[in-house]
């Protein structure tokens, strides 16, 4: 999943159709790992796609997935802040929707759900650690890209990724 087409090597601005077709799954993965449930992930992805659609005209060719991950993360953080101000009750996932659907054939072999306890541990991480780990291990961004996105020094990113993984390691053990 990570490392797939992280850079718009051709130096061209992708079309909306290309982003929707080729990258919405990537955006969903980042959103789901951040949000921890499908209902919230769908909201985050839809809002992110809307921002992408409206912002493509301003996109500077470079790391497309980095740009997309940045938008998804911003939407997630916006939503988190909004909920802190106005507490709401998230609906539980509909079990019928939390299933492996119809992945592309090239993805089927790689389709392996994250163990529930790991996803739960990811959700329990403090937000800054979760964002760092997800951007690193799900979005595949470099520490430098994460630092740029989150507005903290690279050393802080290094610390957050490590501390996040340490917490997840406890869940694995």
């Amino acid at each position: 999943m990570t490392g797939a087409d992280p850079t718009d090597a051709a130096g061209t601005v992708p079309t909306w159709d290309e982003v929707a077709r080729d990258h919405s799954r990537f955006m969903y993965s980042v959103a789901y790992r951040l949000a921890g449930n499908h209902s919230d992930a769908e909201d985050v992805v839809q809002e992110s796609l809307l921002r992408v659609k409206r912002g493509l005209v301003n996109y500077t060719p470079g790391s497309l997935q980095g740009w997309l991950a940045r938008i998804v993360t911003n939407v997630f953080l916006d939503e988190t802040r909004r909920r802190k101000r106005r507490p709401q009750t998230a609906l539980p996932d509909d079990p019928d929707r939390v299933i492996v659907g119809a992945p592309g054939a090239d993805e089927a072999s790689a389709m392996e759900s994250l163990p529930d306890h790991i996803q739960a541990a990811l959700g329990d991480l403090q937000e800054e650690f979760r964002v760092a780990v997800v951007l690193c291990d799900v979005a595949g961004l470099s520490y430098g890209e994460i630092a740029t996105q989150t507005g903290v020094p690279v050393g802080t990113v290094r610390s957050r990724v490590h501390r996040g993984r340490l917490k997840l390691r406890e869940a694995l053990s």
């Binding site: 929707a20 799954r25 796609l49 790689a110 759900s113 994250l114 163990p115 993984r165 390691r169």
Partner: peptide, 27 residues
């Protein structure tokens, strides 16, 4: 730590194409 990293990187999120199409159509 290597195992944690590997698990995170190798685990895909299960989402079907219909859901993605619906989200795109909504946008």
């Amino acid at each position: 730590l290597k195992t944690v990293r590997s698990v995170l990187r190798s685990s895909a999120v299960a989402v079907d194409d219909a859901t993605l199409r619906r989200l795109v159509a909504g946008v």
